[in-house]
Amino acid sequence: MYDLNNDTDLLLAGFTNDYIEGTLDKTEQTVFKEYLAEDAELASFIRKSTQGKQMLRNAFRVRAADDFEEKLAKRIAKEKQSESPCNSTDLASA
């Protein structure tokens, strides 16, 4: 029996995951579907997990503030100042 609350049955967890991700080949998918037809608990778990995956598409995307790179450059410059000076070559002007 697949323990849905444990990391123990990793083989079945792997198949379950590959099924949700759609990465099983045709034969594996057919066999796995037959297996699911006999295991209502696992089938229900897969439905939940698939829905959870779909919900995550609604997550908003966060991006850096416009002055992020400027702030970082300042911090790096400050750090460099406190260390011994070292020359670096600018790739663009090289």
């Binding site: 990793l10 967890a13 792997g14 379950t16 995951n17 949700i20 939940k48 997990s49 959870g52 995956k53």
Partner: peptide
Amino acid sequence: KSRINRGR
């Protein structure tokens, strides 16, 4: 994989 399944 197991944790992703369960997390979702």
